[in-house]
Structure formats: structure tokens, C-alpha cells
Amino acid sequence: MTMANIAPSALAALTRVRCQIFQTAYNPASIRTGAKYLRKRLRGPSMMKYYPPYEQLSLAKLMKQYPEWDVVDEDEQIRLRDLDQRKKRGKGAPKKAKSMEDSRRSKRKR
């Protein structure tokens, strides 16, 4: 029996059964599905292994790690000074409520 004698419908049925057995996608119209790229191995994990772990170096971390060094974080000093100035003008963060009676939400009428 040659290939010319086999009916196309029998070949299609054979292909459908083969796809069920081997758990592949049955795509008789050869439509692009992207299955090739979905089966492909992901690049992310190997790229993460290639590059060293990212740790952002900051002055605060250095100060915490080496307290014997007398290092001054000028940006933090400026931030704290500005915060004090805002608090003196009444522009700071509101005080935290100690109990439900102190809370503004509980005073609201519903």
C-alpha cells in the first residue's frame, strides 16, 4: 500500500490520535500558535545565575554595618532638619490616635 492510496481523512484521523497520545497540539490548518516559544526553555533563571546578586550600596547600610566609623549622612541630616522645621510650622504628620476616642474617624457621624 502506498501513500497515494491512503485517504486524507484517514491521515487526519491518524494525526489527531497521534496528538492525543503524545500530548501535542492538533493543528491541521497550520495556524501560528506560538507553541514553539512556549515550549522553549526560559532565559530568566540562567541570566539570574550569570549576574551577581544586586545589592544597592548605601551610606545607611555602611553606617549600620560599621558603627565604629564616624560617618555622617548629610542627606539624612538635611531631611531631619527640614522635618523639624515643618513640624514647628504645624505642617508635620498628624499625631497617631492612642485610642478609638482620640480617632477622627470615630468622631464622624454616619
Rank of each mutant, 00 (worst) to 15 (best):
62 L>W: 04
107 K>M: 12
47 M>W: 05
89 R>H: 13
77 Q>Y: 03
20 Q>R: 02
74 E>H: 06
89 R>A: 14
98 K>A: 15
81 R>L: 11
12 A>E: 14
25 A>F: 00
64 K>M: 04
8 P>V: 12
57 L>T: 04
105 R>G: 02
55 E>F: 07
99 S>I: 00
84 D>C: 06
49 K>V: 08
29 A>H: 06
90 G>P: 04
14 L>G: 10
88 K>Y: 07
87 K>R: 15
67 P>Q: 01
69 W>E: 02
28 P>Y: 09
99 S>P: 02
92 G>S: 13
47 M>K: 15
13 A>Y: 03
85 Q>Y: 08
78 I>M: 09
24 T>A: 11
101 E>S: 10
46 S>Y: 08
73 D>G: 03
16 R>Y: 11
94 P>L: 08
41 R>T: 10
42 L>Q: 10
90 G>Q: 01
12 A>D: 09
38 L>Q: 14
81 R>I: 02
43 R>A: 12
77 Q>M: 15
35 A>L: 07
61 K>M: 14
7 A>Y: 04
87 K>L: 09
5 N>S: 14
33 T>D: 14
89 R>P: 00
34 G>D: 01
26 Y>G: 03
95 K>T: 13
67 P>W: 00
38 L>T: 05
83 L>V: 04
79 R>W: 07
9 S>P: 00
16 R>M: 04
88 K>R: 14
69 W>A: 13
44 G>F: 09
84 D>Y: 07
10 A>C: 05
87 K>W: 02
105 R>A: 10
15 T>M: 09
48 M>S: 09
68 E>M: 00
90 G>S: 08
104 R>V: 08
68 E>H: 07
59 L>Q: 02
31 I>Q: 11
67 P>H: 03
29 A>V: 03
40 K>A: 15
24 T>V: 12
87 K>F: 04
11 L>P: 00
37 Y>H: 09
35 A>M: 05
97 A>P: 12
101 E>R: 05
55 E>I: 10
64 K>T: 05
63 M>C: 11
73 D>S: 12
87 K>V: 14
79 R>P: 00
79 R>A: 15
25 A>S: 04
52 P>A: 15
31 I>M: 09
47 M>D: 11
71 V>K: 02
9 S>Q: 09
92 G>P: 04
47 M>E: 11
74 E>L: 11
58 S>D: 08
43 R>G: 08
2 T>E: 14
53 P>Y: 03
38 L>R: 15
86 R>I: 01
49 K>N: 11
94 P>D: 01
100 M>L: 13
60 A>M: 05
7 A>N: 06
31 I>Y: 07
45 P>Q: 13
106 S>P: 00
38 L>A: 12
28 P>K: 04
47 M>Y: 12
48 M>A: 15
53 P>H: 05
14 L>H: 03
35 A>V: 06
53 P>K: 13
50 Y>D: 06
29 A>Q: 13
29 A>D: 15
26 Y>C: 03
49 K>T: 10
32 R>F: 10
